[in-house]
Design a protein around this nucleic acid. Structure first.
Lengths: 231, 231
DNA sequence: AGCAGTCAACGTGCATGCAAAATTTCGTGG
DNA sequence: CCACGAAATTTTGCATGCACGTTGACTGCT
């Protein structure tokens, strides 16, 4: 039997795979995602591939234009800023919520995750990026609040895409230290400190990205040229 | 020509229609949404109806179970609470952002919207509910922040569904006064006050809902009975 | 050479057909 | 009369086919 479970939600599998590929930067903003090659890769028909693309478009990771090949989205710089600001608000909620409820087991799991991340830092860049994002997803999951988890996850992936478009190659070492501090604050049960540390961590991530744009986003040509052409 | 624009995004039209029907309580939690009848209503094939249902499921408005007829989602009480808490965080952001940037035209538009809402309050209940939600959507739109707008809108619709499941029939009069106060605070440019008024408004809405459950959500029978059966 | 117009190859938009799962209906036995 | 089980019907899951829009190359004209 070729994995009965896999048949159950092929769309979900395709979405998850593409999300990973996107935050790990195997797929870059602008990369094309034709329905049939996608379907072929996963052994499904265009129908299924199409549904997956629809989902990802709703999440802001893919751009879908009529009669055009789907592409990995290229967030504008404003969208990137917006994403991070929302992310900060949501993850502050996570920190606040967890500071009150976190268990020793959860602390242990987080520490273990961080050490995995530190290890991956030396070996695999994509793995390292993914684990960094996962850290935040795990925190959200630990709140036991499903809707919060969903939005934090979505916005975390969007951030990853924004970083792929605007971030430096990837400087993660500091992030690990910051993650440790977050766990420390949570362990201490200090909600206010946890939220503060979380906020400053995410601000720092955003900062690193926005300060230096490693790749220019595709911009509206006519808008740029307008002042020069001026009558 | 039969409306060229309508052909351009039938999925979007179906989603929008269903969203409206849901927050206006024309559709209640648990109501069935078979692909066939849905498609027939809109004059499209199941393929399109199916895609719309997929979108709405991602937004949490519809429950999709394999080989089962799609139904309007019935949020759990925890999900409802979670939704409102997130909504409060996001709309506080909106208030904060708008207090600094709102223009007289925008104030005027909001006041006009509120008066429409007051009028609808006396005539059409569904219309009244929809306008109340729209007020928040318009605020989000005015921030000019597309991602923030998207999440606020989504979470507002989810709240509407939660109210449909747990809220009282619909007491809106007070909401109008609260909306007025929000606009006043925005006009004064007092960010902190605006955020505070917004937060208390949304808390009040949530409060009215959670205090009295007008309709019990379908619950997991076996879970309820388990303690009694316990050998 | 440069440019416009044409056409074929490719890709999406959507309906439909068929298989399988679920639900309902109906008939039978207790 | 009710419980139970099997056939009939409904409904979803998914692939595929056809129509049309888009793209890029090729040709012929200047």
């Amino acid at each position: 039997m070729t994995s009965k479970k896999a048949l159950i939600d092929r769309v979900v599998v395709i979405c998850a795979t593409l999300r990973s590929a996107i935050i790990e930067r195997a797929l870059s903003p602008g990369d094309k995602l034709p329905e049939d090659s996608l379907g072929e890769s996963f052994g499904v028909s265009r129908t299924i591939a199409r549904q997956a693309l629809g989902q990802l478009a709703a999440e802001g990771l893919v751009n879908l234009r009529r009669n055009r090949i789907a592409v990995v989205a290229t967030p504008t710089i404003e969208e990137a800023r917006d994403t991070f600001e929302i992310r900060i608000a949501l993850e502050a909620l996570v920190a606040d919520c967890l500071a009150a409820s976190i268990t020793p087991q959860q602390i242990k799991r987080l520490r273990s995750h961080i050490s995995d991340q530190a290890k991956a830092n030396l070996t695999s860049e994509p793995e390292s990026i993914r684990l960094a994002t996962d850290f935040h997803v795990i925190l959200a999951e630990m709140t036991g609040r499903p809707i919060l988890e969903r939005y934090v996850t979505e916005v975390a992936y969007r951030s990853g895409l924004a970083l792929s478009a605007y971030g430096r190659p990837h400087s993660n070492d500091c992030a690990i230290e910051e993650h440790r501090r977050i766990v420390d604050a949570l362990e201490a049960g200090d909600a206010e400190a946890a939220a503060r540390v979380m906020t400053s961590h995410l601000s720092a991530v955003a900062e690193r990205a926005h300060v230096q744009a490693s790749r220019q986003p595709p911009r509206d040509l006519s808008a740029i040229l307008a002042p020069y052409i001026a009558n």
